[in-house]
């Protein structure tokens, strides 16, 4: 009798374990993301896998419950039968309040750990890290000003911190313009060295635009009147699209550019070839 009573529970337990395993397998093995090309992209992909695993487990479990209930407790047409008059069950209600609360808390804490490792929680300085500039306090606009938000990038692990390459981005209907202030280069494409932090200071001339590189897993709005900052460290040499992600007018879909990630020496060659400033100390630090 005891074994008979336990059987449904054991079955439930096995189904639960199987669901978690399926969720973990799907999360680890089904790749929905493009190639990763920045330091924080693998961190993002790690978070994505965890969320994908949890989501798959929950979704299959709940859909399974619905389908099973509809088949198991189906009423034949034409018959009149009643279900059981169960109005509630307090322990069950507490259980399915507590479990989602714990899952959500775990997801929140884990994603903030990821966010922190991406550099999002670091108090940031203009031209070194990400965020939005405070435009209302003139005394705070000098170097060393603390700005907050955006997302920034950590250095490649195991390497000493390197000075970020400063680049000024101007967004307008319907193009991005990139200016390298130290080398005095103006370009329609963004060239960046692999493995070295890059710091974008972005301004918009007309309406709100957004700078998005899917392979970097990074996006930041570019807002007129309020310069925004975004830092990243590219890792994988190659060409990736820069996409405007904020509706900016008729040609919004055509507002695209390219970021070219190059090994540091190729990047240095590109700078040397295009810069009117020949071999100044500034460009030397830039390509170091």
């Amino acid at each position: 009798m005891g074994t008979l009573q336990l059987t449904p529970r054991i079955i439930t337990l096995f189904i639960g374990i199987a669901l978690v395993l399926v969720g973990l397998w799907v999360g680890q093995n089904v790749n929905l993301l493009p190639v990763d090309a920045s330091v924080n992209a693998p961190l993002y992909d790690q978070l994505f896998k965890v969320l994908f695993s949890i989501g798959t487990t929950l979704f299959i479990g709940i859909v399974g419950m619905v389908v099973y209930s509809l088949m198991r407790f189906r009423r034949r047409s034409g018959t009149v039968t009643e279900g059981a008059a169960v109005e509630g069950n307090l322990p069950l209600e507490i259980l399915w309040t507590a479990i989602p609360a714990v899952v959500v808390l775990f997801v929140g804490i884990y994603s903030f750990d990821i966010y922190d490792r991406m550099g999002g929680m670091v108090p940031m300085h203009d031209h070194s890290m990400a965020g939005m500039e405070t435009m209302h306090e003139p005394e705070a606009s000098g170097p060393g000003q603390k700005t907050w938000a955006g997302i920034s990038s950590v250095s490649v692990e195991g390497q000493p911190p390197v000075a970020a390459v400063p680049i000024e981005v101007t967004a307008m209907q319907f193009a991005f313009i990139f200016r390298y202030p130290e080398a005095d280069i103006i370009s329609g494409e963004l060239h960046v060295p692999a493995g070295q932090p890059v710091s974008l200071r972005m301004t918009a001339n007309d309406v709100i635009h957004a700078f998005w590189v899917p392979e970097f897993r990074l996006k930041q709005d570019i807002i007129p009147g309020q310069p925004t900052l975004l830092s990243f460290t590219a890792t994988r040499p190659g060409s990736y699209p820069i996409v405007c992600a904020e509706l900016c007018g008729a040609y919004h879909g055509g507002m695209r550019s390219t970021v070219i990630v190059e090994p540091p020496e190729e990047f240095a060659n590109w700078v040397a070839k295009n810069s009117p400033v020949k071999a100044t100390p500034a460009s030397a630090t830039l390509i170091s």
Binding site: N40, L43, Y44, L47, F48, L51, G55, V104, V107, G108, S111, F112, I114, Y115, M118, G120, I151, A210, W212, P214, R217, L218, K219, Q220, A245, E246
Partner: peptide, 14 residues
């Protein structure tokens, strides 16, 4: 719930 997570949203927002 995934979109509510800042680092997740920064990639897929808009």
């Amino acid at each position: 719930v995934a979109l509510a997570q800042v680092p997740f949203d920064i990639h897929v927002h808009d």
